[in-house]
């Protein structure tokens, strides 16, 4: 097992962890959602990396091509991207409503207001 063969996975883990870090370390709700999106995109890259076949071609059948990359991860991620943006928008809509109700999108500020009730 050579290290180069695992390079993709390690970068994906790094990207995943940056997204994770933004989600848990940042207090701003919009930045948290951006962090979730970074995390999500890293999962997409993980799936597509797993589907790649060395020397393969894009899975559109043509004459004279023997080896294709795996189409199944492509299908899963294709739909996941569009579902991802729809759910992201739902999260952002919640942030907009929270900001209208509390006057801030900072997490600790919202907690403080809740406790003072």
């Amino acid at each position: 097992m050579n290290a180069l063969g695992l390079y993709n996975y390690w970068i994906v883990i790094f990207l995943m962890m940056t997204g994770f870090y933004v989600v848990i370390a940042s207090g701003n709700l919009v930045k948290k959602i951006i962090g979730l999106n970074l995390f999500q995109a890293s999962v997409f890259i993980l799936y597509i990396s797993a589907g790649k076949v060395s020397g393969g071609s894009a899975p559109i059948l043509r004459e004279g091509i023997e080896s294709y990359s795996n189409p199944l991860p492509h299908v899963l991620i294709l739909t996941a991207i569009v579902v991802g943006v729809a759910t992201t928008a739902l999260g952002l809509a919640l942030v907009v409503r929270i900001r209208e109700a509390y006057g801030t999108a900072e997490e600790d500020e919202i907690h403080r207001q809740d406790e003072s009730l």
């Binding site: 995109a41 997409f44 990396s49």
Partner: peptide, 21 residues
């Protein structure tokens, strides 16, 4: 990420990521 998808043969996914992301 979309360019990475092109390199990894996932042209449909790259298309979607470029438009959506």
């Amino acid at each position: 990420a979309a360019v990475v998808f092109v390199v990894l043969d996932a042209v449909d996914v790259a298309f979607t990521e470029a438009a959506v992301g």
